[in-house]
Computed example of a mutant assay.
Amino acid sequence: MMLPTHVLAGMLLAAPLVRVAPELATVGFVAGFLGGLFPDLDMYVGHRKTLHYPVYYSALAGVFLMVALAAPSALTVAAALFFLGAALHSVSDMHGGGLELRPWEGNSDRAVYDHYQKRWIAPRRGVRYDGAAEDLALSVGLSLPLLYLLDGPLQLIVGGTLLVAAVYTVLRRHLAELAALLIPLVPAMLTPYLPDRYADMESGK
């Protein structure tokens, strides 16, 4: 799934705070956003492995959620929502496409790495690939309650994220083709540093 879908999902996890602890809602929405964002910081360094931990984030989320329920504060709520967002991101990547430059071709058997079992989890392709029409539909669906619940800067962030999702969906396949054209132009000394999905294409695999 694309990053906008992940961050919107992370934010929506904080929605119950609007009713049960409105004074902590803002920190919860921000933490959920950051948690949904964090795993994809490994985009060019072992993507879906270096910072994706479907098992360990889920365990940490459970621990910090219990702590936040027992002793609610800005810090405990932020920690709980951050790890919940990161866990949801890592787990939901299992239901998307594989880790390849053109995931719509369905050639990859790698969706996300499970560090606990030390193996790659195969893609289930409920969402065919990041930026697919159903991915955009998810982003729209997640954004609607957020746009209703939020106002001010947070509402603008949701609107901006949705705009990024729409643009990315329109350009997704074109970006892959552009990358395929540019990869052969990369100097040989730099190709060892390409992400696997680019390096495989460069080597003709």
Rank of each mutant, 00 (worst) to 15 (best):
R110T: 07
N107G: 14
G126M: 06
Y129Q: 09
D114Y: 00
G126W: 09
L138S: 14
L138V: 14
G106S: 13
E134T: 15
E134A: 14
V112A: 04
D109R: 10
V112E: 02
K118E: 09
A133D: 13
E134W: 06
R128D: 15
Y129L: 02
A137N: 04
S108V: 05
P123R: 07
Q117P: 02
D114R: 03
K118V: 08
V112Y: 01
A137K: 08
S108T: 05
D114Q: 01
N107C: 11
R125E: 14
R128K: 12
R110G: 09
I121G: 03
D109F: 04
A137S: 12
A137Q: 10
G126K: 04
P123D: 14
H115Q: 02
L136T: 10
G106H: 11
Y129V: 07
Y113E: 01
D109E: 15
L136V: 10
L136K: 07
R110P: 06
R119V: 07
W120M: 02
D130A: 15
L136W: 08
A122F: 05
D130E: 12
D135R: 06
V112W: 02
R119L: 03
A133K: 11
R110D: 09
A133N: 08
N107D: 09
H115I: 04
A111E: 02
Y116G: 00
Q117I: 04
S108W: 05
Y113V: 03
G126C: 06
R125Q: 13
K118N: 10
A122W: 01
A137I: 09
R124H: 09
Y113W: 08
K118S: 12
D109W: 00
A133L: 11
H115E: 03
V127P: 00
R125V: 10
K118M: 12
D114G: 04
Y129E: 10
S108A: 15
R125W: 03
Q117R: 13
D135N: 12
Y116T: 02
R124L: 15
R125M: 12
A137H: 06
E134V: 11
Y129T: 12
H115L: 07
D109G: 12
L138Y: 12
R125T: 14
I121C: 00
W120F: 03
L136Q: 07
D114E: 01
A111G: 09
D114V: 06
A111C: 07
A132E: 12
R124M: 15
Y113P: 01
A137L: 14
L138K: 06
I121D: 02
G131W: 05
R128E: 15
K118Y: 05
V127Y: 09
R124F: 10
R125F: 09
Y113L: 04
R119A: 10
N107T: 14
I121N: 00
